[in-house]
Write a protein that binds this DNA or RNA. Structure first.
Lengths: 222, 222
DNA sequence: GCCATTACGCTACGGGTCGTATCGAAAGCG
DNA sequence: CGCTTTCGATACGACCCGTAGCGTAATGGC
C-alpha cells in the first residue's frame, strides 16, 4: 500500500498502524479545507500529530500520499442486485456519484490523475488501488446480466475484455465529467437518463447478431 | 481572454500582442517538458523572453495562464459532415482524441480541472473558453441529425437541453477517461465501438415513433 | 534482562519558488 | 512634446521542500 515499505520480516520497532490511519485521515481533512495545491506535507503531519520525517519515511511524496488517502474512499463500492442490468448500473453509478460529491475526492482524484500523465509509476499505483477495484464492479454486473439473459455469454474473450473496458470508460468518464467539469450533480434524474442510453445501446447491439439492427428489410438475417 | 485586462480605451503604451503569443507558446512548451507540477512562472517567462513581472500583469497565476494556453488547442475542433449521425460523432471524437493525445493537453487540462473544484472563477473560465466551445459541436451535430431525420425535432426545449448536456458529458468524459485514466489510445477501433453504442442508444430511445429499426419482430403499434 | 535494530519526534538547514515592490527606460496617444 | 501605461530588471521576505542529524522509544533475538 505504501511506496516505501520496510522489509517485513526484520527486527526492530514496528511502524505504528495508528499513525497510518491518522495520516490518511489528516490528508483527507486537509484536502477538504485546503484543496490539492495548497496542501502541504508539513500541515498534514501537524494535523496527524506526527513528525514530518515520519511522513517521508512512508510515502515518497504528496502524490503517493493522496492516492492512498483517496483510494480508501472507494472501498465502500458494491454492486447491488436490483434485478436488471439497467437498475444495477443505476445503483453503481449513484454510489460512484456520491463518492465524487465529497470534496476530498473531487480535489484529490483529478489532481493525481493529472500528475500521473508524467509519472508512470504513479499511474500504475492509481490503476492498482483505484481503477482496478472499480472495473471489477463492471465485470460483476456483466456476469449478472449474462445470468439473467440480458447479455449473451461471452463468445470471444478478447472482444469481451474490450467491451468491459469500453463500458468502464463510458460510465466512469461520464460521471466524472458531469460532476467535475460540468459541475452539476449526478442526481437520480441524470443517472436514469444516462443509464437508459447506455443500457439501450448495449442490449440493442449485443442482442441481435449485428446486421439486423440498421436495416429492417435486410434479406440475409431471417 | 486574460484575467487582468487593462481598461481598453485608455491611452499609454499598449500591451505587446507578440508577448502574449510567446507566453502562451512557452507555457505549452513548458507543459510538454516539465508537466504541470514542475512548471514555474519564472521558467515560462524566461522561455518567452519576457520579464516575470510582465506575466503577473496579465494573468493572475499559473491556473489562469494554463487555461488560456490549453484553450487554444481546442480552436481547431470542427464538425465534419460525413452523412450520418454515427459518422459525425466518430469524426468529432477522433479530433478530440487527437488533441488529448498531445502531452501539453494531457498535462494541463486535468490539472486545471482539479484546481477548479476549489476555485469557482477558474471553473467559469474553463467553462467559457473550453467547454462551451465543445458543447457547440454537440448542438451542431444534433441539428444535422435532425435535418437528416435521424433524430426527431426538439419537442420540449428543456428536455432537449438536458439531452445535449448528457451527450456532451458522455462523449467528452469517455474520451478523457480512456486517454488519461486508462491511458490507452482512443484509436479508430475504440472510437467505432464507442460511437456504435452511443448512437444506438440515442436513436433507439428517440426514434420509437419513427421506424421500427431495433426489433424486426416488434409489434409495431402498441 | 541485555543488545542490536528499527521507528519516532524534534530541530535545523540549503535550495527553490512565490508574488510584490521599485525604478528607469521605452512606446504609444493627443 | 508631455502624459500615460507597459516593459525589463533586480531585489526582497515569506513559504515550502526534502534531508540530515541526534537523542529517545519500542520491538525481537539471544
Amino acid at each position: 500500500m505504501h511506496r516505501r515499505t520496510p522489509p517485513p520480516g526484520r527486527a526492530g520497532r514496528p511502524r505504528s498502524a495508528t499513525a497510518d490511519a491518522a495520516i490518511l485521515a489528516a490528508t483527507r481533512a486537509a484536502l477538504v479545507e485546503l484543496g490539492w495545491s495548497k496542501l502541504t506535507l508539513g500541515d498534514v503531519a501537524m494535523r496527524a500529530g506526527v513528525a514530518k520525517t515520519t511522513l517521508y519515511r512512508r510515502w515518497a511524496g504528496k502524490n503517493e500520499l493522496v492516492v492512498d488517502a483517496v483510494a480508501e474512499l472507494f472501498d465502500e463500492l458494491r454492486v447491488p442486485d436490483r434485478g436488471s442490468l439497467a437498475a444495477d448500473i443505476e445503483g453503481v453509478v449513484l454510489q460512484f456519484a456520491a463518492i465524487l460529491a465529497r470534496p476530498e475526492a473531487r480535489s484529490g482524484l483529478m489532481a493525481v490523475v493529472a500528475e500521473s500523465t508524467r509519472d508512470e509509476p504513479l499511474r500504475e499505483r492509481i490503476r492498482a488501488s483505484i481503477v482496478e477495484r472499480q472495473k471489477r464492479l463492471v465485470l460483476e454486473g456483466r456476469a449478472r446480466a449474462q445470468a439473467r439473459g440480458e447479455l449473451p455469454p461471452e463468445s470471444d474473450p478478447g472482444e469481451a475484455a474490450r467491451t468491459v473496458d469500453l463500458i468502464f470508460d463510458v460510465v466512469a468518464g461520464a460521471v466524472v465529467h458531469r460532476t467535475l467539469v460540468s459541475a452539476e450533480p449526478a442526481d437520480e434524474q441524470w443517472v436514469r437518463s444516462f443509464t437508459r442510453v447506455l443500457a439501450t445501446g448495449l442490449t440493442s447491439l449485443a442482442a441481435p447478431p449485428f446486421e439486423s439492427r440498421t436495416r429492417p428489410d435486410s434479406p440475409s438475417g431471417a
